[in-house]
Design a protein around this nucleic acid. Sequence first.
DNA 1: ACATGTGAAGTTATTCACAGCC
DNA 2: GGCTGTGAATAACTTCACATGT
Lengths: 218, 218
Amino acid sequence: MADRVSAKTVGRLSLYRRLLSGLVSVGTRYVFSHDLARLAGCTAAQVRRDIMATGYHGSPTRGYDTLELIRSISDFLDAPDGMRSALVGVGNLGRAILAYFVGRRPRLSIVAAFDNDPDKVDRDVHGCRCHNTSEMQRVIREQEIVLGIITVPAPEAQHVADQLVRAGVWGVLNFAPAPLRVPAHVYAEDVDMTMALEKVAYFARQRQVERVAEPEPG
Amino acid sequence: MADRVSAKTVGRLSLYRRLLSGLVSVGTRYVFSHDLARLAGCTAAQVRRDIMATGYHGSPTRGYDTLELIRSISDFLDAPDGMRSALVGVGNLGRAILAYFVGRRPRLSIVAAFDNDPDKVDRDVHGCRCHNTSEMQRVIREQEIVLGIITVPAPEAQHVADQLVRAGVWGVLNFAPAPLRVPAHVYAEDVDMTMALEKVAYFARQRQVERVAEPEPG
DNA sequence: ACATGTGAAGTTATTCACAGCC
DNA sequence: GGCTGTGAATAACTTCACATGT
């Protein structure tokens, strides 16, 4: 658990934990790496490697104890005192994310939203108070918010990111279709839906072309 | 342009094209790989490698002709006759995606939406007709839809994916936080926002820990 | 001079395959 | 026998570095 872990492993651990929670909720006490792999859509070796990073050890006879493994992944991923996020841009996408996250994870919570629209400011959106963007610096410092989620239109994204960084956040999750520039001490991740759709379009077509060219694979 | 191209390269090509469109719209005729790299947040060598896949060649003196490169990437990525998509699940996230995509790309368009809510069925949502889910098979075949976008809650996602596959789609883009199982001839991609946020949380904290431990980096 | 295009090298990620254990 | 944990092998991806062209 001391050595550097890749972004992919971290992402998959987050996924395993979610899958494990589902298993626990239907009463499953133990899983084998193969089962988790099938659920996660990867290989069993991958699952075992990833779990190594958390320091947890399963049993060759029973596999992994679901609750213990959830705890181990959580110890690895989560900050002991939790981390608080703010969302900027309460459009459709912002609301969708608020609806999904608010009140779900106590250790990774969205505690404030920002928008310029007077119809949204000073109201609760899916249980999260929306402030005017001009209040960003103050609210982020007062509420000890360390993560920012950007759901504004692309042209505003970089400016919002700069404001978030100035307010002292450590990480930014950007949904605007424009890569961000942030200082080295801030971690930024882009979720690009256009890219995702174009990837699907490309590879879906590619497979179809192959299928037509070579209808009998074996 | 004949050999297999990686998903990462395809994704970046999609990004380059978007960045190039922005450059064209402000009148930029030529770019060097370094410029594109800075905008895309990667290295110049990466840009040049990726562009190789499209078969386009720049000039050592002027760099890449923005319009020509857009055309080359489009020839590489896009289906000649375009591809039509359907979105299933007209909640906040579904509406956000419709608002963003509808009417934007003629060669990769969302032409139908599906939901079970009677308040949404047979109405237009952001310019896209919403049908009852029971109509899925018929509409997808009639309108020659080949891609599905899933924005329903996690428990319904697999069932929706199965319906889409049965209706004959080639690819699925899944926003529900549950990995899908699809047959080998269908391409599926998951966009997992929870995973993305947890990744940001983890690495943001990690950097902060390092910063505190070692405040003077050089 | 300085940029592209690209083999070669380097780096990172995944899978194999088997020792060890129940 | 079939699982985990993991060194070793493989594959995938990125960067280097330089030949080539203008």
